[in-house]
């Protein structure tokens, strides 16, 4: 991929003619050159559209909703894929295609919102530790080390049980209220935060490393000299300069959070009925794998395709935003 043409272009675009804002334009062009990343971007966009609008369109065209149960057949309800049910039907006879689209909403939402939570926590934590430095940095990073050593599954379960059921904080309930509310949805919103709160650790390390290398730059000295407050230096001057690696790492956090959610749902700790996610659909499918394999294969493959695309997009973004250090 790193052919001569490419290098020539990098050298040329790095020239002094380019203004600072062209970094993002450059990155965008490099991203578009990467076929796999473009593939990922297209699949993700399509997936978001299908998952977002698909259920409405499908209901309008065929009258099939995720709760729809066909009238025919009384003993056997799991039908193999057909024209009417392209992914077959599940144990209860519900259309699997509609369920996979609906589950995709939850899975994608878990991925995105939990990543935002982990971004907010991780970036602030890492930036503060890195900028203040010294003993406080040392203590803050040792805390991160300790949390690393505790199995995250324990933390998630404790968070879910401390704040679950009756004890869900009001602000989570009101947030879930915008999307319809109800006990199941409140639980899902709690899951967003529980997952976000266990996936910020690496983000904090990445940001801290960036801030450490930035904080002795002259622009920080200039800001200090003109009397800018410490929080403003951290969040207005330093964090925006560390944005590249943060975006890259965030893109790679989305698939890993989605995997964790699927894993929790597989263990029966994540998304609860009547809601579904790709993970919980796959977990349901495993029970019937010998007789109705499509009940595992469709949600599983849809999820794998999405994660595959997200990983490629994340890789492409890293190469685009940071062409010097191509890790992995």
């Amino acid at each position: 991929m790193r052919d001569e043409q490419h290098i020539k272009e990098e050298v040329m675009t790095d020239g002094p003619v380019m203004a600072g804002s062209s970094l993002w334009k450059d990155a965008w062009r490099r991203l578009l050159k990467n076929k796999l990343a473009v593939f990922g971007l297209i699949v993700i966009t399509l997936m978001v559209i299908v998952v977002g609008l698909g259920p409405f369109i499908r209901e309008y065209l065929t009258g099939i909703t995720p709760e729809y149960i066909p009238a025919e057949g009384d003993k056997i309800r799991s039908f193999p894929p057909s024209w009417r049910h392209p992914m077959g039907t599940d144990e209860a006879g519900r259309d699997l295609f509609a369920r996979v689209m609906q589950g995709g909403r939850i899975s994608l939402m878990v991925g995105i919102i939990s990543t935002i939570v982990s971004l907010i926590v991780g970036v602030s934590y890492g930036a503060i530790a890195g900028y203040i430095g010294g003993r406080i940095d040392n203590i803050m990073m040792r805390i991160v080390d300790i949390i690393y050593a505790i199995p995250y599954i324990l933390i998630v379960i404790v968070l879910l049980s401390v704040f679950g059921g009756e004890n869900i904080p009001d602000w989570i309930n009101s947030l879930a209220g915008y999307f319809g509310g109800g006990a199941g949805l409140n639980q899902i919103f709690l899951l967003f935060f529980a997952l976000g709160l266990v996936s910020w650790l690496t983000m904090a390390r990445v940001v801290r490393g960036q801030i450490l290398s930035l904080k002795n730059e002259e622009f920080v000295l200039a800001a200090k000299a003109t009397g800018v407050s410490t929080p403003a230096i951290i969040f207005r001057h330093l964090v925006p300069n560390a944005l590249g690696p943060v975006i890259v790492y965030a893109t790679l956090t989305v698939p890993s959070v989605m995997l964790t959610e699927a894993f929790l749902s597989f263990l029966g700790l994540g998304v609860q009925a009547p809601y579904a996610s790709w993970g919980s659909l796959a977990a349901d499918g495993i029970k019937n794998i010998a007789i109705f394999p499509w009940q595992l294969i469709f949600p599983g493959v849809t999820m794998a395709l999405t994660l595959f695309s997200l990983n490629f997009l994340g890789d492409g973004l890293r190469d685009a935003l940071d062409p010097q250090t191509r890790k992995f």
């Binding site: 698939p255 894993f263 796959a282 495993i286 599983g300 999820m303 994660l307 595959f308 990983n311």
Partner: peptide, 22 residues
């Protein structure tokens, strides 16, 4: 390798069972 990173192991395991055992 990317495929390996993207297929959850609780999907991979049962698919292997389906193919090699069943």
């Amino acid at each position: 390798a990317m495929l390996g990173l993207s297929v959850p192991n609780f999907v991979l395991g049962p698919i292997l069972v389906l193919f090699f055992s069943l």
